[in-house]
Amino acid sequence: MDKQRRKFLKIAGATALAGIGAPALVRLTSSTALASEHGAAVEGHAAEAAAHGAHVEAVPQGVRLGMVIDMRKITEQPELLDHAIAACNNAHNIPQFDNRKSEIKWIWKAPFENVFPGESSYHLAKKVEKTDFAVMCNHCDDPPCVRACPTQATFKVKENGIVAMDFHRCIGCRFCMAACPYGARSFNWEDPRPYIKKYNKDFPSRMRGVVEKCNFCGERLALGQEPACVEACKGTGAMVFGDLNDAKSEIRQVLDKEFTIQRNPSLGTKPSVFYIV
């Protein structure tokens, strides 16, 4: 339980720094406790954790889609990630800009210390240090971007837990970008069309002034397909996609078995993307 205590102290410090009052502290810590409980469960105390969790929040219902990214596989075959990104770009008519400012990212690469800024990167394993991590929208259970959106252009799909976007409604206020702690959203500073290499005629492009992000391939799921990136890594197990609430699903099998971490769980957003490092 040493680890848990350390986390608690860290959060307490962070909230004190942020000047948040006591009630907020309680709320934040209780939800983090849940997250760490989750971590504990992965360590092999599944039954206990489930019972414990039930006290804190209602029994999870319905479908909640999530993903496990096995970085061990990607470290072995870095080209997998390139395929996944290319597949996503094609599927969603994502433009390719040369300048970084205009860059549109749904799934992208980032080094460990950027992806997990909360974790110590001191004496990091060399292979981890050198590997690019796959990063995308975390489709949080409690997404701050949804709360920030004034027009409900970003919303949570009740049926599957995807944090989806209705581009028609987006007014480009970029509140969501400010709210998202993972930088998972991009803004179209320019008209993207000239920079789209190849059109997927079944999917729209976006216009200037709209925010966009990964949608867990909602449109492919409807056709019974897996997300484009998952499909691109098919057979390698580098990306596993499924219902987090279904105990029998493949993703749950992986989660039950492996130690996974989430990006910045201390914020209480409850990400749906897990990493095996």
Binding site: K198, Y199, K201, P204, S205, M207
Partner: peptide, 20 residues
């Protein structure tokens, strides 16, 4: 209508399929 700001007409879609 602002449909075509994002949605592709068949003609547009075909345009960038060929170049690839």
């Amino acid at each position: 209508p602002y449909c075509w700001d994002c949605h592709l007409t068949p003609k547009e879609a075909a345009l960038k399929e060929e170049t690839h």
